[in-house]
Nucleic acid binder design. Sequence first.
DNA 1: GTCTATAAATGGATAGAC
DNA 2: GTCTATCCATTTATAGAC
Lengths: 196, 196
Amino acid sequence: MTDRRARRHEATRQEILDAAWALARERGLTGWSLREVAAAVDMRAPSLYVYFERKDAIYDAMFAQGYRELLAEFGATSTDGEPVEVLRQVARGFLGFCVADPARFQLLFLRVIPGFAPSEGSYALAEDVLARLRGVLEQAGLTSQRAVDLWTATFTGLAAQQISNEPGGDRWTRLADEVVDMMVAAMSAPDGGRSR
Amino acid sequence: MTDRRARRHEATRQEILDAAWALARERGLTGWSLREVAAAVDMRAPSLYVYFERKDAIYDAMFAQGYRELLAEFGATSTDGEPVEVLRQVARGFLGFCVADPARFQLLFLRVIPGFAPSEGSYALAEDVLARLRGVLEQAGLTSQRAVDLWTATFTGLAAQQISNEPGGDRWTRLADEVVDMMVAAMSAPDGGRSR
DNA sequence: GTCTATAAATGGATAGAC
DNA sequence: GTCTATCCATTTATAGAC
């Protein structure tokens, strides 16, 4: 009984989140109101407070969901085969994930919402993703902190340019393989690329 | 007379812009209202409409000013000396420009304000900067479109990571020289790096 | 859990006197 | 050019009935 109710509660929560995502995709990450979300799920705004304490709590749940999706995207990528080829797969997968949903990209990787910061629990998911990335990079000999930092900067940068300047295109995302090779060549030396 | 008045008008316009910048830096690019800007210059909100037709017109003027400042930053960078050293200077200068004002960075390089797009005239300034960058890169043998695209993506990416994850630090910006060398090594071949 | 009603604040923008 | 007054819409959030 209570269990059944809890499941129903969770389902409604997810419906609300889905509606918020849809609006964020249509009008921009910050371009929607609680009234609109409520209307989209056939409710009035005050009812949302049964499921989320504040508007920021919706952003926080979206943040967490986004990183769970990214972790899933990671899981769907084969980690067998030549390490460099795995890296190429990871890079392509990541860029596809980013351009598929610009609003999600902004929420996860840019600090765009005035006053919003993810909760500790949600932020932990972001760190899980980073840990996972670190593992893959290590397999290909990219072990230094610098290599990891450069990786995240480069691929979020490619995604940002693609989204900002040519949404729907591939002028930046198609550089993925090339960039992977370049980074491996430069940073996988025994000294992590320091010698150059 | 009319000339004097026009100069005064322009000066007030700039005061308003300065106030808007200050608020954007304090509370985020979108975290301020016309009332607040007006108060900062000792006016009431309606008076602002003498100087700007809409709030978006203020954003547009800020966008244009930002790119003019970036062009000036370019001008302050020596273009003498070894081409690769020039590139390093340009890269460091660009990253310094970005992290010095995160709100400006968001306005110029990310699409963050729902509904706002720069006017034709303002956008032309952005293209001036890009043309200037293209020139510098060419001097160092980076002539392909791919090299230019990778450059912009990489350095806006480094800036974004620095600003989002470690504001005030240099964990990402200090990678500048290393990244320049890597890009030159990879993309300055006669075929623009295609051979790898 | 959902609603109506409403608080309480804030927003961009306009009218019209001075 | 600047103001007061105000419109009108919108926002997040709460109180309390059902």
